[in-house]
Simulated scan of single mutants.
Amino acid sequence: MEEPVREELSALAAIFCGPHEWEVLSRSETDGTVFRIHTKAEGLTDVDIPLKLVFHLPVNYPLCLPGISVNSEYLTRAQCVAVKEKLLEQAENLLSEPMVHELVLWIQQNLRYILNQPETGSGSEKCTFPTSTTVDDGLWITLLHLDHMRAKTKYVKTVEKWASDLRLTGRLMFMGKIILILLQGDKSNIKVPKS
């Protein structure tokens, strides 16, 4: 096993250190390593959906794609297949570098968009979502404070569309009279105000 892969596995074990979050299923010099990560991702109704993600890292990983299996009691078989396909598409963008943590973060942030795709059996409109969470300029985060919001439902839909068009992820938070928008994405898609 190569040192970067050994380091990645050690980091994953430290990150997913809660009860039953991480489990190594097998290790072999010829077949690679198979492990399971239990995590949660935000679904269509802002409810966290438990996911069981099984990764098989072949001996020549990360120069090749990992094997991925997705299972959840809250998703249909077609939805699990769609999630797996999207994870493999993401993995193609990350070849030659350790990618499992990036893939888990990506699915945590984008599961709701996948579930909203017509081919997964729910939703009627095709949504776009980020194809990568890393770029040359890195991942940027910005926090916006809104003075007021008149038509909340319409405004929320507009903000969601803008975020989708700009390939950003984020949160819209209402804390009493304070309204905040937290955005995360490529530097080129987040305009930082000059002071």
Rank of each mutant, 00 (worst) to 15 (best):
V104A: 07
K84H: 08
Y113W: 09
R27K: 06
L63E: 15
E42K: 12
V47F: 03
A91H: 05
D147F: 04
Q108S: 10
V24Y: 04
L94T: 07
G18H: 05
G121Y: 07
D136P: 00
A78N: 14
L95C: 10
I37W: 00
K86I: 14
L57P: 00
T39N: 05
D136R: 00
V135P: 00
P98T: 14
T30P: 01
M149R: 09
V47G: 02
Q90D: 14
I49R: 07
I37Q: 01
M149G: 05
R36E: 15
V135F: 01
S132G: 01
K152I: 14
I68A: 04
L115I: 13
K152H: 07
R112G: 03
P130W: 13
R27H: 02
L51N: 12
D31H: 09
I107K: 04
E119F: 10
L87N: 13
A78L: 14
L111N: 13
H145S: 11
H20Q: 15
I37Y: 01
P66Q: 08
L95Q: 09
F35K: 09
H101F: 09
S124G: 13
L111A: 12
H56L: 13
T128E: 08
L75H: 06
L57M: 04
G32D: 15
G121F: 08
V70N: 02
K126G: 10
Q108A: 12
Y74P: 00
T76S: 15
L57T: 10
E92A: 12
I141Q: 09
I141M: 04
E85T: 10
D46Y: 04
W106M: 07
D136C: 00
L143N: 11
D147N: 08
V83W: 02
T133F: 06
Y61W: 12
V54A: 04
T128L: 03
R150N: 15
T134Y: 00
T142G: 04
E119Y: 12
V54P: 00
V81S: 07
K152L: 10
D136A: 00
Y61D: 13
L103T: 03
T142H: 03
R77D: 14
Y155P: 00
L139K: 05
N60I: 15
R27L: 05
Y74H: 10
L143K: 08
N71S: 08
W140Q: 09
S72L: 09
P66K: 03
T134N: 01
G32H: 10
F55C: 04
F129A: 07
E97H: 06
R77T: 15
Y113Q: 07
K84G: 04
L65W: 06
C80G: 03
Q117F: 02
L44S: 13
T45P: 00
L53I: 14
S72Q: 08
W22E: 15
L88N: 02
E92M: 13
R36F: 08
N116M: 14
N110Y: 06
L95H: 10
P118Y: 05
E92V: 13
P66M: 08
A91V: 13
T131A: 04
T131L: 06
P62N: 06
L63M: 14
S72H: 07
F55G: 04
A78H: 11
P58W: 04
S124C: 09
L103M: 03
